[in-house]
C-alpha cells in the first residue's frame, strides 16, 4: 500500500482525533518532535531532529505523584498518570532503536517502571526510512539500516510523491485500519543510501573491556566542558534525578533528566566521589555506550544518530574515539 504525500495532512488530522500526534518540526528554532497542527509546518524530509523523541516516553520532567496531608492530618500519596494515546510519525531508525534500548532499561531486570510503561503501551511508532544522511550519521556502522526500523509498528519508505506503508507489528496492523481511506495501491521507488560516516565496531567492546585504565580517557576529557549537552541530545541517555516541589500542605515528586557528566551526579557524603573528575565521568559515559550496556543488555547503547558528534561544543567525538580504539593494540 502507499500513502500519497497529498493525503498526509488528512491522515494526520484523522489520527489526531484519537491520539496526540507528534511530528518533526521546528519550534522556537529547535527541530524536535512536537504536536502536529498542519502539514505545512512539518519537516518530514529532515534527516534528524536536533532533540530526540525520547521525551514522549521519558519526559524531561515527569510528575510521579502528589503527596500531602489531608484534613485529618493523614499523609497521602496520589500517583499521577499523564499517559495518553500518542503517535510518533516520522521517527527514524536510530531513534527507533533508542526506544528498544530504553525498553530494556525501563521494562526489564525485575522492576517495571510504571510511568514509562504507561506511556510505552500507548505509543504507536511510525517510522520513515531516511533517503538522505547527515555528515554525522553513522547508524549503519552500528548495525542498523537507515531505511528499515524492524521494531516500528508501521514502516514508511519515501518515494517521490508517496510513501510505501507496511505494518510490522500487531499494533501497527490494527492501526492501519483507520488509515485505509488515505491509502491506495501502488509502489514507490526508494533510492538506496548509505551513511557517509563510517566506523568499525569490530573488536571495540573487547578492547574497551581492557581499557579502563588507558591514558585515552585523560586525553579525551581534557577539553570536555562538562556541559552535559551530549547526554541531553542523546536518544538513549536515560539517567534521571528525583526531586520535589512543595506548596503549603502538599507537593509533587517528579523525576527529571540528569547527566553523568555533572560532578554532583555521584557525589556522596564525606566528600567522597567515585567519579571525581571529568576523566572518570567521560570514561563512564563512553564505556556505558559501547561496553557496559552490552554486558547488561546485549546491545550497544549508541545508535549512531550523530547528535553528540554534531552538538558537542568542543568536538568530543564518539566516532573518532571508536576509530582510535580500533588502532590501539590492547
Amino acid at each position: 500500500m502507499i500513502l500519497k504525500k497529498e493525503n498526509v495532512q488528512n491522515l494526520l488530522d484523522e489520527l489526531s482525533k484519537s491520539a496526540l500526534v507528534f511530528v518533526p518540526k521546528e519550534v522556537d528554532g529547535v527541530l524536535k518532535f512536537a504536536p502536529f497542527k498542519s502539514a505545512d509546518e512539518m519537516t518530514l524530509d529532515i534527516i534528524n531532529t536536533t532533540l530526540p523523541p525520547k521525551d514522549l516516553l521519558f519526559p524531561q520532567t515527569q510528575k510521579m505523584y502528589r503527596y500531602g496531608i489531608d484534613a485529618d492530618g493523614k499523609m497521602y500519596v496520589d500517583p499521577s498518570d499523564d499517559s495518553a494515546e500518542q503517535v510518533v510519525f516520522g521517527i527514524r531508525t536510530c531513534d527507533m532503536q533508542s526506544i528498544v534500548c530504553m525498553d530494556d532499561v525501563f521494562l526489564t531486570k525485575g522492576f517495571v517502571d510504571e510511568f514509562y510503561q504507561a506511556k510505552r503501551d500507548k505509543l504507536l511508532t511510525v517510522a520513515i526510512g531516511c533517503n538522505k544522511v547527515a555528515e554525522t550519521c553513522f547508524c549503519d556502522s552500528m548495525g542498523l539500516d537507515p531505511q528499515n526500523s524492524p521494531t516500528a509498528d508501521i514502516q514508511l519508505l519515501e518515494g517521490d510523491d508517496a510513501y510505501s506503508v507496511v505494518a510490522q507489528t500487531e499494533k501497527g496492523e490494527k492501526a492501519l485500519e483507520s488509515w485505509k481511506p488515505f491509502l491506495s495501491e501502488g509502489s514507490v521507488e526508494v533510492p538506496k543510501i548509505e551513511c557517509a560516516l563510517k566506523v568499525d565496531m569490530t573488536g571495540v567492546k573487547d578492547k574497551l573491556d581492557r581499557m579502563f585504565d588507558h591514558p585515552i580517557w585523560e586525553e579525551l576529557s581534557a577539553k570536555c566542558l562538562a556541559c552535559g549537552t551530549c547526554t541531553y541530545v542523546c536518544p538513549t541517555c536515560h539517567c534521571f534525578d528525583i526531586s520535589q516541589e512543595n506548596k503549603m500542605k502538599d507537593g509533587v515528586r517528579f523525576r527529571c533528566w540528569d547527566s553523568c557528566m555533572f560532578s554532583e551526579y555521584t557525589q556522596m557524603a564525606g566528600d567522597h566521589n567515585p567519579r571525581p573528575t571529568k576523566k572518570e565521568r567521560l570514561r563512564n559515559r563512553f564505556m556505558h555506550k559501547l561496553c557496559f550496556f552490552e554486558d547488561r543488555y546485549g546491545k550497544t547503547l549508541c545508535v549512531g544518530c550523530g547528535r553528540c558528534v554534531e552538538k558537542c561544543p568542543v568536538s568530543v567525538d564518539i566516532t573518532c574515539l571508536i576509530d582510535q580504539i580500533g588502532e590501539f593494540d590492547v
Binding site: V105, F106, K109, G110, F111, D113, H238, C239, F240, D241, I242, R255, D258, C260, Y265, T266, Q267, M268, P274, N284, M287, H288, C291, F292, F293, E294, D295, R296
Partner: peptide
Amino acid sequence: LEMRMKCGVGKCGRCNIGGK
C-alpha cells in the same frame, strides 16, 4: 557497597560499576 542512588531499581543510572 554504597553509591549515590535515586531510583533503587536500576533505571536512574548513577550507581553502576561497569555493567553492574
